[in-house]
Design a binder for these strands. Sequence first.
DNA 1: TATCAATATGACAGCGCTATCATATGGCGT
DNA 2: ACGCCATATGATAGCGCTGTCATATTGATA
Lengths: 334, 334
Amino acid sequence: MASTIKDVSAIAGVSMKTVSRVLNKERYVSEKTRLRVERAVAELNFRPSVAARILAGKRSYQIALIYDNHSPHYIHQIQTGVWARCIEEGVRLLAQPSDAASPILAREIGGLIDQTQVDGVILSSPVTDAPGALEELEKRGIPYVRISPGTDYDRSSSVSMDDVQAADDMTSHLIALGHRRIGFVVGHANHTASDQRLFGYRRALDKAGLAFEPKYVRPGAFDFSSGEAAGDVLLDLAQPPTAIFASNDDMAAGVLTVAHRRGMSVPRDLSVVGFDDTALASQLWPPLTTVRQPTRDLAYAAAGLLFDAADEVVHRRLPHELVLRASTAGPRKS
Amino acid sequence: MASTIKDVSAIAGVSMKTVSRVLNKERYVSEKTRLRVERAVAELNFRPSVAARILAGKRSYQIALIYDNHSPHYIHQIQTGVWARCIEEGVRLLAQPSDAASPILAREIGGLIDQTQVDGVILSSPVTDAPGALEELEKRGIPYVRISPGTDYDRSSSVSMDDVQAADDMTSHLIALGHRRIGFVVGHANHTASDQRLFGYRRALDKAGLAFEPKYVRPGAFDFSSGEAAGDVLLDLAQPPTAIFASNDDMAAGVLTVAHRRGMSVPRDLSVVGFDDTALASQLWPPLTTVRQPTRDLAYAAAGLLFDAADEVVHRRLPHELVLRASTAGPRKS
DNA sequence: TATCAATATGACAGCGCTATCATATGGCGT
DNA sequence: ACGCCATATGATAGCGCTGTCATATTGATA
């Protein structure tokens, strides 16, 4: 059924090696032969066998994307971005869910590499910060790029956004609206972004000369129900916050639900903001003011770094954006 | 770095072929040798090269999942389900986004197969109903299983839920609550499930002796904004519906937003229901009454069919479930 | 014209496995 | 004792490519 290089070389009237040269865009092929070969390839609708290429050559034309994230939206955007860049490069993508906290993560990654011989790996947060994983990749000399790493910044190329500045911007925006008691729901403890967003929140308070009140900060885990729990605690305070900043949209949705359940009107009685600008943010009522995290673009850029600058360590930082919607307003005069 | 069968055979003191036999669980290997080989494999942490296996053998230990769906939640569940089954089988999964309406879909699938030699393919709706794709797979003799196919039911094995019955159940539930004017938002025209859900709605009306009113049915596209548009039209009617059934949760979210925007209270002034029970459904306010579609289980079962019953055509139908939440109530007395 | 590097092409081995076929061993019936 | 089949193992070829090295064929330079 499927044709081989041999078939192509027969039709084009050249050696197999020359066909191989054309396929790999190597130098030293004359224009004339290249055209002949390309015509033969098109005629047979020939596709080289990835397996044979891996076995014979050094490249596999495959990269792996390793992720462990419980937000389907986030994963989807990451996949889409990396995918788009891979298509351009003619490289296949192996998507690999995993568990960043698993003790066998390194072994799994090792197995993946042994089995598939991927040319490179893209790590998305929080796998970016699993020491075992990084060691395994380095031991094998596999190039890798990290998306939003939290630790060992200079250990590999990476793409990221400025979480600290984004949280600072959002907090400053709330302060500018007149809020003085601002609640904060922290993200999952595994993710370094959680710390950074918390730090940005504190920095903004500090710049504005507002005191940091630990009671206004609640832990969360990036999921809806932890947002609900945190919202309940914050709104039960004697002096409840007039605005709540959740470290992602899912948790903000939880806060919103708690407010509705208590018969509060958002944003009249309470302003709520999120982080990420997932699809969820605009599908809630009221639509959520949030930080647009350029997830898809980060993923696209990460794949680009992997292909372009295999050797040197490069960091690319992409801009974020405040998305102002209807969930925020000034505090009620009281 | 990575070890080979040769290394294993040297340690175990047997031939390469015997090691291969153990790896492939072939017959005619004595217990004793099998243990020796397994110990050597463990010692070297040996993983056979997928590439070499593909090249030499008939199997590739890889399957592909082809999808084209704009709901990240749905994709995520499909991926997770198929993935889980693949892990059990020790098979690698290639996830392949695609465009069901693209004229080059068949060529893309052909290319994928030529390049990667996948052992089988899982098609998720609506790629399930792309004639070119099915022909390509059959031409190449690649086994495939479809998830929720809409056409050519007996053409391949498949897993599905009963969309007609589910929509009937939900509509009957609304009627039982006392609703007589029930709006319906149809799904994307590409998906056969859209027709089936509409038919279930009509069948329930019919059984209850209620007339089918075309003006209460609006087209949609499975996304939030088409839900908003449909909701606006329905609520602008002189005799607006007292309940709206959207063919998926995203569109129900759109209807909910329109209702909020008009200052209506859900479910007091309007009941709203969705379909799928994605995470979104429980994160909205009020939480959405919906049909739980067992997406993850469908995907898991689909992979199972691919591995188990490669030859015969088997259909597996999984049960759905009405999830009653706070977005429904009886109509207001008027 | 001779010389050399840059360009262009091909012959052939071998990547790490599995398929095929050959061979060896043991137990059972006659 | 002999054949015969089920069981158990190995030797060898080759899957479809690419790497290496050898071999033209140019054009520029001395």
